[in-house]
Nucleic acid binder design. Sequence first.
RNA 1: GGCCCGUUCGUCUAUCGGUUAGGACGUCAGGUUUUCAACCUGAAAAGAGGGGUUCAACUCCCCUACGGGCUGCCA
Length: 472
Amino acid sequence: MKTPVVTRFAPSPTGYLHIGGARTALFNWLYARGRGGKFLLRIEDTDRARSTPEATAAILKGLTWLGLDWDGEVVSQFDRAPRHAEVARDLLAKGRAYKCYATQDEIQAFRAQAEAEKRSTLYRSPWRDADPATHPDAPYVIRIMAPLDGETVIHDRVQGDVVIRNDQLDDMVMLRSDGTPVYMLAVVVDDHDMGVTHVIRGDDHLNNAARQMMIYQAMGWDVPVWAHIPLIHGPDGKKLSKRHGALGLEEYQAKGYPASGMRNYLTRLGWSHGDAEIFTDAEAQAWFDLDGIGRAPARLDFKKLDHVSGQHIARMADAALLREIAAFRATTGAPALSDLHEERLLAAMPYLKDRAKTFPELLEKARFALIDRPVGCDAKAQEMLDGVSRGILRELTPQLQNATWSRQNIEDATNRFAEDHGMKFARLAGPLRAALAGRTVTPSVFDMMLVLGQHETLARLGDAAEDKTGGA
RNA sequence: GGCCCGUUCGUCUAUCGGUUAGGACGUCAGGUUUUCAACCUGAAAAGAGGGGUUCAACUCCCCUACGGGCUGCCA
């Protein structure tokens, strides 16, 4: 029987959810969800000085926004410290670890000298083979006994087989002198206890995998499947850092990218499935595999994000889009839309969603539907509504008044009017735009009329004809 | 310093020894048009460098260059 897949995301709560971390979480989520497995969440909060509850909250919030749901309770690594220590002592009892009484000063001095002499800085503790009878009554750390020769092979699903000579591995510390566990021990114990089968994480941990395997082997535990994915870089190809901006996931939320577009973009960044570019979650889950992950770090490309985002907005169902936009407005602190405005926005959706890459862009194009009279003209729209144009609108109004409100009828009436007056429709379009929206850049005038309805349309035309549209 | 990983159009990538090296974003040129977009068509654009192996190398091996990571009683 095949063991079910269990993946996990294990961030340190030292800040917001980083875009790179979000992608790592996404890969774990996709892998588990596509295989009917579990996706677990563990907060690595053993560094008490840097961990904050606010950061944990921000991470959960970010994951929730991205739509990555996890299974079971969130595990706090710090809470499991006693269990980590227990394993360290177990290893001690098994003779796979030893107490080291070397002071930090001693070790530091050794490293400084090794560095000066350009020798390996790997520290070899003299206490490894010391007779327990000679142990002083002093603080000690517990170090693992690393194998002295041979090699460790990391069978990595992304990087291939990575061979590390065991003489490159030192007797790493597992338990500090104050009895607290070190990260390297904690991850292994937690991953094992949580039943994690696939460790998908940044390739900055690739070398660490060899160290961690020492613990798995000493405890006789199954080593998980490794998949070390390249970290993503900024647009300049350099490591992601503050100066790149847009580092936190919430910044993307604030910019109005739909979560589905974000998932699509991040999935496709450094992973591919033939020529597939735009896909649904169901497709991503079905297609996602470790083999498709590239081995080189990928750069963020905001233009492509825009494109993917636009495609997702265009493909979303109108009602769903309306809900997402309402949620987006709420996060920006905008007041909820009135029923009338919401109704109009929904009606306008088919005309707007093909043309917007983000929610704010869509909202901007929807302005005409979300305002009440007077429309409020900006400078260009005001210019458009000169005396002549107002006269034209006055004459056009009765034609629209008599039309039964359908696209066909509105278009016919308008075109007939233009023809009768020997003008091109383009001559009418500008003033109509200004009258209906108070702007010169708007959706199609017929689309707007349809969304607004006959009554509102005529009222706005009336305002314009009488020069009562108001300023911007 | 030691060890490990990586390198195909500007960017994300396909190719898993034999292709005119394909797609997407972006760019440029046309088209459509009712403004802005969107959309459609087309174009330019790539195997880091050097050695091997092979009838044949982007693909396999080695070296170099460049980029990245690890080397903590941080995670």
